Computed example of a mutant assay.
Amino acid sequence: MDFTQKKCVSCETGGDPLPDSEVQNNLASIPNWELDGKMIHREFEFQDFKDAMVFVNKVADLAESEGHHPDITIHWNKVRLDLWTHSMNGLSENDFIVASKIDKI
Rank of each mutant, 00 (worst) to 15 (best):
S65Q: 13
W33R: 05
D51G: 00
I40Y: 10
P31L: 08
N57L: 04
G67F: 04
P31M: 09
S65V: 00
K50C: 02
I74V: 15
A52L: 06
F44G: 01
H75G: 02
Q24Y: 14
M39K: 15
D48N: 15
D61N: 08
F46I: 02
F49H: 09
D36H: 13
L62N: 07
K50W: 02
T73M: 14
H41V: 03
I40T: 06
E34N: 13
A63Y: 01
N57R: 01
L27I: 09
N26F: 15
L35F: 08
E64K: 10
L27C: 11
I74E: 04
V59G: 00
D36S: 14
F44S: 01
D71G: 07
D61K: 04
G37A: 13
F49T: 04
L62E: 04
V59T: 03
H75Y: 11
H68E: 10
N25K: 15
H68L: 10
S65M: 04
H68D: 05
F44A: 01
M53V: 10
E43Q: 14
V56G: 00
K58C: 04
W76V: 03
D51S: 13
D61P: 00
V59K: 00
A52F: 06
I30L: 10
L27W: 12
S29D: 12
H68Y: 11
A60E: 00
D36M: 10
D48R: 01
N25S: 13
W76H: 14
V59S: 00
V23Q: 13
D61E: 13
Q24R: 15
N77P: 00
G67Q: 04
L62H: 05
D48V: 06
S29N: 10
E43K: 13
A28H: 12
D36N: 14
A28G: 08
E64F: 06
E64W: 02
H75V: 14
I72S: 06
A52T: 12
